Amino acid sequence: MADVSLPTPAAVPRPAAIPLREIAPWAVFGTVLAAVLLYFVGVEQGVLAVFSGEVLHEFVHDGRHLLGFPCH
């Protein structure tokens, strides 16, 4: 039988871990942004309305149904 030598795979360098200090501000920003968007899509109407009228409600109307929020 013939000896077949296979090439050895090159060592892939492992990326350095990202420090929590760099992730925290972006995580807080993303959480606040998601909460604001969820408020406008899910709650913005009626007594708690920040904007008067139905313009914002109609703008996010399909998103409300997609996310399962009742609106009428």
Rank of each mutant, 00 (worst) to 15 (best):
M1V: 12
A2H: 13
A2V: 13
A2C: 12
D3V: 03
D3N: 08
D3F: 06
D3Q: 07
V4H: 13
V4I: 15
V4G: 10
V4M: 14
S5H: 12
S5M: 13
P7E: 06
P7N: 08
T8K: 15
T8E: 15
P9Y: 01
A10L: 09
A10Y: 03
A10F: 03
A10P: 01
A11Q: 10
A11E: 13
A11N: 02
A11I: 08
V12D: 11
P13G: 02
P13Y: 00
R14V: 15
R14K: 14
A16R: 12
P19D: 09
L20T: 04
L20K: 02
R21L: 09
E22F: 04
A24K: 03
A24N: 01
A24E: 10
P25K: 06
P25F: 05
W26V: 07
A27W: 03
V28C: 04
V28W: 00
F29G: 14
F29A: 15
T31V: 00
V32Y: 07
V32M: 11
V32H: 03
L33N: 05
L33S: 10
A34W: 08
A35L: 11
V36E: 10
V36Q: 01
L37S: 11
L38K: 03
Y39M: 03
Y39C: 03
V41E: 08
V41D: 01
V41I: 14
V41Y: 02
V43N: 09
V43D: 11
V43I: 11
E44W: 01
Q45V: 09
Q45R: 15
Q45Y: 14
G46W: 08
G46Q: 05
V47H: 09
A49Q: 11
A49S: 14
A49D: 09
V50D: 08
V50H: 04
V50L: 11
F51L: 12
S52E: 14
S52Y: 03
S52L: 04
G53F: 01
E54K: 11
E54R: 14
E54V: 06
E54D: 15
V55S: 15
V55K: 13
V55R: 15
L56K: 02
L56M: 12
H57Y: 09
H57D: 08
E58C: 04
F59C: 05
V60I: 13
H61T: 07
H61I: 10
H61R: 15
D62K: 09
R64P: 06
H65C: 09
H65E: 12
H65S: 10
L66D: 07
L66V: 01
L66I: 03
G68D: 08
G68P: 06
G68Y: 00
G68S: 04
P70M: 09
P70G: 12
P70R: 12
P70I: 05
C71V: 11
C71L: 10
H72W: 05
H72Y: 07
